[in-house]
Nucleic acid binder design. Structure first.
Lengths: 179, 179
DNA sequence: TAAGTATATGTGTATTGACACATATAGGCA
DNA sequence: TGCCTATATGTGTCAATACACATATACTTA
């Protein structure tokens, strides 16, 4: 899998151009999957060849024309079939944890600084999730189409909270030493 | 980065052959970084060319000879320099969360099954972390060289607990609907 | 006027990673 | 005897990913 599927998921929201998708990947879905624009443009072509999307060129004066992609019935079917396949849990795959395994062979001062920076980064990310939840989901029950997005946010919060707790404990453990 | 650095980290533990490393990547460090054996063998050659490891062939009768790799001073230096570079937080990158974004276009029954399976998988992983902690780190203060490994385990527990909480809430949210 | 930023689409290439295939031997089991 | 598993090292190849480069225009700011 998976970039192709992630794109199909995005296009259930609304028809989008490659540029739109690239921006979308930098925000909402980008919390759970990443892609650069060359990747997206190439993948869109493949999806078109498979008949999962159709493109429509929007003529624009001055700026380059937008090529807007739209899901086909075959694309929706592919998405449905993909959603039935089992998913393996993603592994953590984090540099910082790898470094920790060789704690006696690395620069401990740098390590403390990195954990401090991480703590700040995770707090900021958590604040961003809270902000999104407050502006989008604070008005009673979410609409059924938004439920998944809210659940995604909640996982993000769970994840960031876990890291924040860990960073605080880690710093407490590492502070005592002179270096 | 990073497979090369992960291998250097492993070799701080003890000299290892490619086969040893592949097994090591399936257990301890494998919680935070993954690698297949062809990848490891190729990377070891590159590390040798850079002078970060030296190899020593252990003659064995019958079985193929083991080529055991050992860190050099240059390798230790490279590890130290790597440990000073800032690390970006890893993103979550999880299929399940991507699917959730298109919740109205996927198979909801399959989704519930997948979350149920995930809950079980995360509980099992958590139990494994607890087991490792109990057998390796239950005897008072950990040795300095083991501190990082203990901290890694703790992050793993934080992570699995977050997922477990989320799965339980998610199932509660999804159950009510007939389908 | 020059520089930077946003819009919009691509190519070219290198690195990484996944996975099948290949080889060789010893030991256990049916 | 045949098959599977464990030990041990590789090659060959394709897909996925990252990143630099290329192009074209409009608008804003110094």
């Amino acid at each position: 899998m998976a970039l192709s599927d992630a794109i199909l998921v995005c296009l259930t929201e609304r028809p989008m151009s490659g540029y739109d998708l690239a921006k979308y990947f930098d925000t909402s879905i980008g919390f759970f999957w990443h892609a650069t624009h060359p990747q997206i443009y190439r993948e869109l072509k493949k999806l078109g060849q498979r008949g999962y999307v159709v493109s429509d060129e929007e003529i624009q004066s001055g700026k380059p024309n937008r090529i807007v992609y739209c899901l086909t019935d075959a694309g929706r079917q592919a998405l449905l079939e993909w959603s039935r396949k089992p998913v393996a849990p993603a592994l953590i795959k984090d540099d910082l944890l790898v470094r920790l395994q060789a704690i006696e062979h690395i620069d401990k001062r740098a390590l403390r600084q990195q954990i401090t920076a991480r703590l700040a980064a995770h707090r900021e990310q958590l604040a961003q999730y809270h902000h999104i939840r407050d502006v989008r989901f604070s008005h009673g029950e979410p609409e059924p189409s938004d439920l998944g997005k809210l659940m995604g946010l909640e996982l993000g919060m769970e994840y960031e909270n876990g890291w924040i707790n860990w960073c605080k404990n880690a710093l407490a453990r590492l502070e005592p030493d002179g270096d």
